[in-house]
Amino acid sequence: MDIRPKITPIYQTSVFKFQDLTELETYFQEPGSSYMYSRNGNPNSDELAEAVNKLEGGAGAVATGSGMATIFAALMAYCRAGDHVLCAADIYGGSSALLNAELSRVGITVTYVPFEQLYNLGQFVQPTTRLLLAETISNPLLRVADLRRLADECHRHDLKLVVDNTFASPILTKPLDLGADITLHSVTKYISGHSDVTAGVTVAADAETAARLRQITMIYGLTLSPMESWLAVRGLKTLRLRVREHSHNALAIAKMLQQHPAVRAVYYPGLPQHEQHAVASEQGHGLFGGMLSFKLDDDPEAVSDFMRRVKRFPFAPSLAGVDSSLSYPLGTSHRNLTPEQQETLGISVGLVRLSVGIEPVEELIADLEQALS
């Protein structure tokens, strides 16, 4: 029977068969010629990695079991015990927890760089500094890094630039085209897009780093499962359409919130008043994504009342699904920061983050208006 599926089947197997010793030797002598064990590689995880690699314009990529796993792989591609890394102060809380709580235990130290000083790294660089970790669009205040300028500054100091591109997605920005050495995604978010997958992808600008990432993923057992890979590939096929709708809805909501008397501030790169609006417009080709944050009064009960009243934005501490949701950075992603760090970053009691979905925008606006009133 000649079976030719249009969609790649789910290879739900832990191991693959060899006919004889000749096939076994071919596997080791010709990498990529066949499969042996799904921790080492699987057609479904490879398909996802190759699809994101193509979108980002990379030299190779790996799919991992989570966004945290992909951040770990990216850092380990360049670092060893005794090394020092720089990290943007405006960073996902999980990234800082990995650096502070775990990589510090194996002798990798970190210095956090305020956003305003990202393009002047000289004062932070040490002889053992290897890289800078930053985000295209920061979480949760939506600050936008000028990646070309940042890459030039890193390379001037012989540092690698690792960019978490999760908030932007390759539809808005391709960091490798702007000089980054690695770009990565929590596939859980926009790449998959339906809140039913936990996964990550790391993409390298050069083949040597791509090979190192594959080695790390295999040896540490970071590989993504076949089923999750298959679901992520399915979600990826609508990424371009979804990002356009996310961006359209988020801009309309940001404009509404900007005019609402109960809202103290709105953080969205698509607003002309945003400090990095110009670079966001250039890097995003006129789209600004589906994430925004806004501030209510610094009163926990006022925030809780808003959360109870809103219907279309359930309190779910993640983001980027087709269905809208909200999160509370002070109590979730950034709760482990010190009060001083939280204050410095502007993460206050009244800060609420919205992940704007692709529902009819007039329904979302009506829901927010009734909740805020």
Rank of each mutant, 00 (worst) to 15 (best):
A168Q: 12
A168T: 11
A168Y: 07
A168D: 12
S169F: 10
S169V: 04
S169P: 05
P170G: 03
P170H: 01
P170R: 00
P170S: 03
I171L: 07
L172I: 10
L172E: 08
T173H: 08
T173D: 01
T173V: 15
K174S: 10
P175Q: 00
P175D: 00
P175Y: 01
P175K: 02
P175S: 00
P175C: 02
L176G: 05
D177T: 08
D177A: 14
D177P: 00
L178E: 14
L178P: 05
L178D: 11
G179A: 06
G179I: 04
G179K: 00
A180P: 13
A180C: 10
I182F: 09
I182M: 09
I182W: 09
T183R: 05
L184C: 11
L184W: 05
H185K: 03
H185A: 04
S186P: 02
S186A: 15
S186H: 13
T188A: 09
K189T: 05
K189F: 15
K189W: 13
Y190I: 04
Y190P: 12
Y190S: 12
I191H: 04
I191T: 06
S192I: 03
S192Y: 15
S192C: 14
G193H: 08
H194D: 14
S195F: 14
S195Q: 14
S195C: 06
D196R: 06
D196N: 15
V197S: 00
V197M: 03
V197A: 00
V197T: 05
A199K: 05
A199H: 07
A199F: 10
G200D: 04
G200K: 03
G200N: 04
V201Q: 01
V201M: 03
V201G: 01
V201N: 02
